Measured scan of single mutants.
Amino acid sequence: MDTYKLILNGKTLKGETTTEAVDAATAEKVFKHYANEHGVHGHWTYDPETKTFTSTE
């Protein structure tokens, strides 16, 4: 398992979190669920070199 990072740049919520996942697709599902639960619906990007997802509203 690898550690993946999420950076949230929402209108009402900003911050970072991490998750352990078997691959990027699994981490993306976890992070999108997390963002949706916190009302963040933004544009998603992923940097495979740093294993970092960013959601920007």
Score class of each variant (00 low, 15 high):
32 K>A: 06
1 M>G: 09
13 L>N: 07
7 I>R: 04
27 A>M: 02
7 I>Q: 04
52 T>A: 04
56 T>N: 10
15 G>F: 15
34 Y>G: 01
50 T>G: 04
26 T>Q: 12
12 T>D: 11
20 E>I: 14
8 L>Q: 01
16 E>P: 03
9 N>G: 04
28 E>L: 15
21 A>T: 04
4 Y>R: 03
11 K>C: 14
13 L>K: 10
10 G>N: 04
31 F>S: 01
26 T>C: 07
34 Y>R: 02
53 F>P: 00
45 T>P: 00
29 K>G: 08
15 G>Y: 15
54 T>P: 00
43 H>T: 14
54 T>E: 07
8 L>D: 01
36 N>G: 08
3 T>S: 06
39 G>M: 06
20 E>K: 12
27 A>Q: 00
42 G>R: 02
8 L>R: 00
27 A>G: 01
48 P>Y: 06
20 E>W: 11
22 V>I: 13
35 A>W: 02
13 L>V: 14
32 K>G: 03
23 D>T: 04
38 H>V: 14
48 P>Q: 08
37 E>G: 06
24 A>R: 10
41 H>L: 11
6 L>R: 00
30 V>D: 05
16 E>Q: 11
51 K>G: 02
12 T>Q: 10
43 H>C: 15
18 T>M: 08
35 A>C: 02
53 F>E: 00
31 F>E: 01
34 Y>C: 06
46 Y>L: 01
40 V>D: 04
5 K>C: 09
22 V>S: 12
55 S>N: 14
57 E>C: 05
7 I>W: 03
33 H>M: 13
17 T>E: 05
13 L>Q: 08
8 L>Y: 10
23 D>V: 02
20 E>F: 12
28 E>G: 05
20 E>A: 09
49 E>M: 11
26 T>L: 05
56 T>D: 12
7 I>Y: 05
29 K>R: 12
57 E>A: 05
25 A>G: 08
20 E>C: 14
30 V>M: 09
38 H>D: 02
43 H>W: 13
52 T>Q: 03
43 H>V: 15
41 H>C: 12
11 K>T: 12
8 L>M: 10
54 T>A: 06
41 H>N: 13
47 D>Q: 06
40 V>W: 13
52 T>F: 02
14 K>H: 10
32 K>R: 15
26 T>V: 07
55 S>C: 15
50 T>D: 04
40 V>G: 03
22 V>W: 12
